[in-house]
Design a protein around this nucleic acid. Structure first.
Length: 421
RNA sequence: GGAGGGAUCGCAUAGUGGUCUAGUGCGGCCGCCUGCUAAGCGGUUACACGAGGUUAAAACUCGUGUCACGGGUUCGAAUCCCGUUCCCUCCGCCA
């Protein structure tokens, strides 16, 4: 959420941000509501002050003057009616503010869609194969480690079953990533709930605008997390963090659940885009000064995963038109998949600055006697499983149908290859 | 799911309609004293919003609100009434 004072005092900045994103918001209407609210608030507070003062006098006098009491009763009614109006205005203003996206950082490249995202750098070379590399869905079926048909039988389209070494490969990747981030990058491991209350999703920025993409249990009013970013953001909701404790680094493995309401048939082949997928998420709470540097470190931590696995990748920066709702600046990591012949997004690292912190009310005190400030929050996949899984299968396949296990995973897998039986 | 108890300033507690501007202790911070990591003494101790102020921000002044949350009664609510949430104890169920 952006600060309403920013609209009040620096409207062009907000309008420019909206234009860059190709978004819009009724700023005029919001400012009118805000003006009205402040007028009513001022009136009401003055009436309250008067009532407080007179009530105190009544308390001191022996005989209770009936005409004063009658007068105060009338003021009370005026206060009530003003209060109702203010409450309504507050709700309307908040509803508007919750739908305004974050302000992109000034150095974010302009663009309309993902086609305009510049490639910042690449690492490794997409390797040449002496045979035609297979897509992972063929590899998975031949090795009997991915069962698409039974996934559909159980749950419908966009679900699959991992089996045997397939299931173990996923588990090994998760453990490898968590161990790496915890042991070498300084993150604290978190296991959060997969179902959360509605206010958590407002805090992270998913609601009210993006409810379409979420699974919701109507009976208990639980929401299934679309990413661990949601519970991690809310870990410190309504808290004041001691400035000396910052930055805080969290790493969490969770399943993620998304409706993915997109055109039927798009990306349905294989495991690239499912309603349920696993992810190791990295998350940081930082002060307002260091968040931009922390974003680069976060990206480096995520890169370290794919680098150690020896997978060729590239870094793209999201342009203003492709930037996530809560983000001021984002970088994606994309892995090359030789079988399906495309770059796969396995990570998106973002600095939300104080946008989520304002929604979730997370503050810190920079130093003794200094006023509270909102923390900055950063998130990044470290990294997402299905696509990493795809990249391992497709890049490490051999002509005989076997898969070489990358060195760092061998202790977890207990083998150096998956072979056809 | 059932029965009962509870939620007050960072922590612990006092407070049953007006002198609560929420007291006290602990902790924290500032200072004083003291030849010595102690004790004592004095002071201080939240957040939000609005108006003013200044405008690069703040400091500052005034007001309003906040005693879990939301309503109600009343001229006036931490205090009385209703609802909700959470915590604790016991019973039931259960991986």
């Amino acid at each position: 959420m952006i600060d309403i004072k920013l609209i009040r005092e620096n409207r062009p900045v907000v309008q420019e941000a909206l234009d860059k994103r190709g978004d819009n918001a009724p700023l005029d209407a919001i400012l009118q509501l805000d003006e009205k609210r402040r007028q009513s608030l001022f009136q009401m507070e003055n009436l309250r002050a008067k009532r407080n003062q007179v009530s105190k006098e009544i308390g001191r006098t022996k005989e209770k003057p009936p005409q004063l009491i009658a007068e105060m009763k009338q003021i009370g009614e005026q206060i009530t009616s003003l209060e109702e109006g203010i409450k309504k205005l507050d709700e309307e203003i908040r509803e508007h503010l919750l739908r305004i996206p974050n302000i992109p950082a000034s150095d974010v490249p302009l663009g309309k869609s993902d086609k305009d995202n510049p490639v910042i750098r690449t690492w490794g070379e997409p390797q040449a194969f002496p045979f035609k590399p297979l897509p992972h869905w063929d590899i998975g079926e031949k090795l009997d480690i991915i069962d698409f048909d039974r996934g559909v039988k159980l749950s419908g389209t966009r679900f699959y079953v991992l089996k045997g070494m397939g299931s173990k490969l996923q588990r090994s990747l998760i453990q490898f990533m968590l161990d790496l981030h915890v042991r070498e990058h300084g993150y604290t491991e978190i296991y959060p709930p997969y179902m959360v209350k509605q206010e958590c999703l407002v805090g992270s920025g998913n609601l009210p605008k993006f409810g379409d993409n979420l699974y919701h249990d109507e009976i208990e009013d639980f929401w299934w997390v679309p990413t661990a970013e949601v519970p991690l953001t809310n870990l410190h909701r309504d808290e004041i963090i001691d400035g000396g404790r910052l930055p805080i680094y969290y790493a969490a493995y969770t399943a993620c659940f998304r409706r993915e309401k997109m055109a039927a048939g798009k990306d349905t082949r294989g495991i690239k885009r499912g309603h349920q997928f696993d992810k190791v998420e990295l998350y940081k709470f930082t002060d307002a000064e260091t968040s931009d540097q922390e974003l680069l470190k976060l990206l480096a931590d995520a890169e370290d995963v794919v680098r150690r696995l020896g997978l060729a990748y590239r870094i793209v920066q999201l342009c203003t038109g492709d930037l996530g709702f809560a983000s001021t600046k984002s970088f994606d990591i994309e892995l090359w998949a030789p079988g399906c012949n495309e770059w796969l997004e396995v990570s998106s690292c973002s600095n939300c600055r104080d946008f989520q912190a304002r929604r979730a009310n997370i503050k810190y005190r920079p130093g003794p006697d200094q006023p509270l400030k909102f923390v900055h929050t950063l998130n990044g996949s470290g990294v997402a499983l299905p696509r990493l899984f795809i990249a391992v299968l497709e890049n490490y396949q051999n002509a005989d149908g076997s898969i070489i296990i990358p060195e760092p995973l061998r202790p977890y897998m207990g083998t150096d290859a998956i072979r056809p039986s």
